[in-house]
Computed example of a mutant assay.
Amino acid sequence: MADPTLDPDTPASRTVRAQPRGQHKGQQTRATILEAALGLSSQIGLEGLSIGALAEVTHMSKSGVFAHFGSREELQISVIREYHTRFEEEIFVPSMDEPRGLPRLRSLFQRWVKRVSVEVDSGCIYISGAVEFDDRPGPVRDALVAMVRTWHQALQRAIRLAIDAGHLRPDTDPAQLLFEIHGLILALHHDARFMRNPGAVERAGRGFERILADHLTATAPPMPAR
């Protein structure tokens, strides 16, 4: 099911997560554990995440951590959902302030690239999780696929809006364009994180504009000067 918070036409997209005025102690403890789990999983991956490892990092008992998540699988799924929430708050929500069409699509890509560049030293759970769970069916893989698919659906929606706005040619294939854009992100992650090649971010930006160039119309707004 598509996540309504990633629908550009849904008001909820501007209020992704409403914080309660007063969290109970149990909720605060769970949030603390989840924060530690996010950091740990970025270093050792979702597969390396365990109740025992998290208990050691948070200086809690295993039973204390278990009481908040119940199982290692539930812990992993909770980490995926929290990562997705932060991902959309950082990339999707602020991009909705841009005009529909090419400005919004460019903002989504640029913010995505910025996040990948920041995650060079920690890793992207979407990408590392795909390597860990690509051939391992189960609830963790299902949760990971659902989050990535939700993000892809949001990007495809942004591409379609750019077509509707007359910025991209009517014969543009949203699925194909998304595939090529996602390919740039994977290449960026590989070159920046694994190869440590300088200039990878700039090359990703140039690649994005080159891909767009094949689909732009005469009325498409130009790339903003930097």
Rank of each mutant, 00 (worst) to 15 (best):
A2F: 10
R30H: 07
G64Y: 02
A53L: 12
P11I: 04
D9V: 04
D7A: 13
S13F: 00
G45I: 09
P11Q: 01
L46K: 04
A31L: 10
T58A: 15
V57C: 00
F66A: 12
A12H: 04
F66K: 14
Q28K: 05
S42I: 00
L6K: 06
A37Q: 09
S13L: 05
A36H: 13
T29V: 04
S13C: 01
F66V: 03
P4E: 11
L6N: 05
E56A: 09
P11M: 05
L49F: 04
V65R: 08
A55E: 03
H59Y: 08
P8F: 08
R14A: 07
E56R: 14
G26E: 14
T10G: 05
R17D: 01
P11K: 03
H59P: 02
A37K: 07
P4G: 09
R30Q: 07
G26K: 14
E47I: 11
L34M: 09
P4V: 09
I51C: 09
A18D: 01
L40F: 09
G26R: 15
E35F: 10
K62Q: 06
Q23F: 12
S63W: 08
R17W: 02
R21L: 04
E35Y: 10
P8S: 05
V16T: 11
K62G: 01
E56Y: 09
K25V: 12
G52P: 07
A12P: 00
G52H: 07
S63M: 10
S41W: 06
T32W: 03
T29L: 02
I33R: 03
F66L: 13
T5K: 10
Q27I: 01
S41H: 06
I51V: 13
G45V: 09
H24C: 13
T32D: 06
K25N: 11
G52Q: 11
R14T: 00
P4W: 10
Q28I: 10
G22T: 06
L38I: 14
S41Y: 07
A53C: 03
A2W: 08
D9L: 13
Q43A: 14
S42N: 07
F66M: 09
G26I: 05
M60Q: 01
L49P: 06
T58C: 15
P4H: 12
I33G: 03
P4F: 10
G48C: 12
L34Y: 08
Q28P: 03
H59L: 13
G52S: 12
S42R: 15
L40M: 14
L34F: 08
